[in-house]
Structures are given as structure tokens and as C-alpha cells.
């Protein structure tokens, strides 16, 4: 180089650039088409339910499958909310929604509390049997609820906890998955914070409250959403442990509304109840979406 100023080369609109642009556009269209198709497939049954909940019992009973909303929405929802549906007039949806909400929140909060405490112990303390404790938690992952449901049922009944919130919630609270997730997150907290806290004179509980929990907020929120839905959708365990109509949860209640054999079903009320059962999980996801996505995709520092 001789240090003299080079003249800038003229900019041409070349063929490669144009072809690339065209290819980008085409691939974007394709991607959108695929996404729209996917949404349609997922959304169609929900649309059917929504529409079904706005017609009278007769329309669906005749075997018609309406695709456009009818005019009986108000009465169907009122029936579902106040009286329950099905021929046997099950528990009102309002009661079942409340029960489900209570169960889901208790399960989610309980799981998060317990798994934070156990992950905290496993990550930040050196004690004999630490790895044994960790593996013991890990191994329970291998056992699905269904496998241990009979012995658990036996234990709960022996303890006289059938038909109680304790009996319903406590057996579902232990969570190996959440413990593992929190452990992985806690391992990313730099040692220097632990040491700075030691220099500041913060004891273990203070460190947990003042440093670890604030740093875990997005993870907690994300996990809360997942665990809330997990709790909301519980079916087998509540079915076994709850006989009291007033404690029935909506997922179980919904399935009981549908009669067996050739009995006539109040499909309109059932559909309305199903829509009501959908709302709380949807609300939780919508409200916590911002946190939820952040917690799953990024780790704070």
C-alpha cells in the first residue's frame, strides 16, 4: 500500500443479491404457511368447543356439528356455573374451578418451595451424604406417579387423609424435575457472590432470601406456570382420593359429566364447562408470559 486514498468502488445491484432476496421472501412465505396450518390444526377443536357452548342441547344432540356460534351462550354458561351439567347435575363449575385453582396453586407453590430448599442444600452446602441425597432425588424421576399410586393411596388412607386438601396435595409436591432445574441454575451463580455474602456477614438464610431468590425470580415464574398447569391437569390422583362432591376438581368433574353408554349428554353445558376449565391456565400463561419466556430462554448473569 502506498498510503494514497483509494477511490471507492461503484456499487452495483448484482444478480446474486437479487436472487438471495427472492429466496429469503420465498422461505418466509413457506414458514408462515406452515405456522398457519399448525395453528389451524391446534385451534380447530377449541373453536368447536367454543361454538358448541353457545347452542342449545338439542342442536348437538341431533348430531349436527355447528361451525358458527349460536344464541344460547348466556344460559349455558349460567347453568354450568351455578348448577353443573350432565344428567346427574354434578357440582357447579364455580365450586370446581375454585377447588382446581386451590389445588394447582398449592401444588405449584409447594413444589417450588421444596425444590428450592433441596437444591439450595445440595448446591451450597458440603455435608456428608450430599451426593446420596442428590441421587435419591434424581432417581425418583424414574418413577411415574402411576407406578407408586397404590402404595401412596394406602398411606394416605391409613393416615386418614382421604378427602382432605393435605391428602390431595402433599403426595404431589415432591419434585425431582424442579429440584434438578434449580440445581442447574444455582450452579451458575458465581462463587464470588457466595464469598462476597460471607464477607458481608450474610448467613445461609439471608443469602437465600437476599441473593439467590431475587436472582431466581424469572426461573421461579417460568416454573410456576409449568407446575400450575401440571397441577390443574391432575386427574388420576384427585379421582382416587376425593369422593366428596364439594371438593371435586374441574378436570375430574368434566369427565364425570360425560355419561357412559347411551345416556343423553348435555353437550352444551359440558362444552361451556370445558371452556371455563380452559380459562385459568390460559390466564396464568398470558399474565406471566413475559417472565415465562425470559426464564426459559435467558439466564440472568
Amino acid at each position: 500500500m502506498d498510503g494514497s486514498l483509494a477511490t471507492p468502488a461503484p456499487v452495483r445491484d448484482d444478480a446474486l443479491l437479487r436472487a438471495t432476496r427472492r429466496r429469503r421472501l420465498a422461505s418466509r412465505l413457506l414458514a408462515h404457511a406452515a405456522l398457519l396450518l399448525g395453528v389451524a390444526i391446534v385451534a380447530f377443536p377449541i373453536w368447536m368447543t367454543l361454538v358448541g357452548s353457545t347452542h342449545d342441547a338439542g342442536t348437538i344432540g341431533r348430531g349436527d356439528v355447528p361451525l358458527l356460534p349460536g344464541s344460547h351462550a348466556a344460559e349455558n354458561y349460567a347453568t354450568a356455573w351455578n348448577e353443573g351439567g350432565g344428567r346427574t347435575r354434578t357440582t357447579p363449575a364455580s365450586v370446581m374451578l375454585w377447588n382446581s385453582l386451590l389445588m394447582a396453586v398449592l401444588i405449584a407453590v409447594g413444589k417450588i418451595t421444596i425444590s428450592i430448599l433441596s437444591a439450595y442444600a445440595v448446591v451450597f452446602f458440603r455435608f456428608p451424604g450430599r451426593m446420596i441425597a442428590f441421587w435419591a432425588i434424581f432417581i425418583t424421576l424414574m418413577l411415574p406417579v402411576e407406578v407408586r399410586i397404590i402404595p401412596t393411596f394406602q398411606v394416605i388412607v391409613d393416615l386418614n387423609l382421604g378427602n382432605s386438601w393435605t391428602g390431595l396435595v402433599v403426595p404431589l409436591i415432591a419434585s425431582a424435575t424442579a429440584t434438578l432445574l434449580f440445581r442447574q441454575f444455582f450452579l451458575t451463580i458465581p462463587d464470588e457472590f457466595v464469598e462476597a455474602a460471607k464477607m458481608d456477614g450474610a448467613g445461609p438464610l439471608r443469602f437465600l432470601r437476599d441473593v439467590v431468590l431475587p436472582l431466581s425470580l424469572t426461573n421461579i415464574a417460568a416454573l410456576f406456570v409449568i407446575l400450575f398447569i401440571y397441577g390443574w391437569n391432575q386427574y388420576l390422583w384427585p379421582l382416587l382420593i376425593i369422593n366428596d362432591r364439594s371438593m371435586e376438581t374441574i378436570v375430574v368433574g368434566l369427565s364425570k359429566m360425560i355419561g357412559r353408554g347411551d345416556s343423553q349428554n348435555d353437550w352444551n353445558t359440558i362444552m361451556a364447562t370445558a371452556v371455563l376449565a380452559l380459562l385459568p391456565p390460559v390466564l396464568v400463561v398470558a399474565l406471566m408470559q413475559r417472565w415465562f419466556v425470559r426464564g426459559l430462554t435467558e439466564t440472568e448473569k
Binding site: 464469598e195 462476597a196 456477614g201 437476599d210 436472582l215 440472568e300 448473569k301
Partner: peptide, 20 residues
């Protein structure tokens, strides 16, 4: 003695400032 009882202060290489 525990670090907090030694009447010392430490500046860390990565500063270790609590991010929140």
C-alpha cells in the same frame, strides 16, 4: 473466625456486585 468477624473488606477480581 468467620470472614465477617475479621474486620476486613475484600475487592474481588470480577467485583462480585449483586446484579439485582
Amino acid at each position: 473466625l468467620e470472614p465477617a468477624d475479621r474486620d476486613i473488606a475484600m475487592v474481588f477480581q470480577n467485583y462480585a456486585l449483586y446484579p439485582h
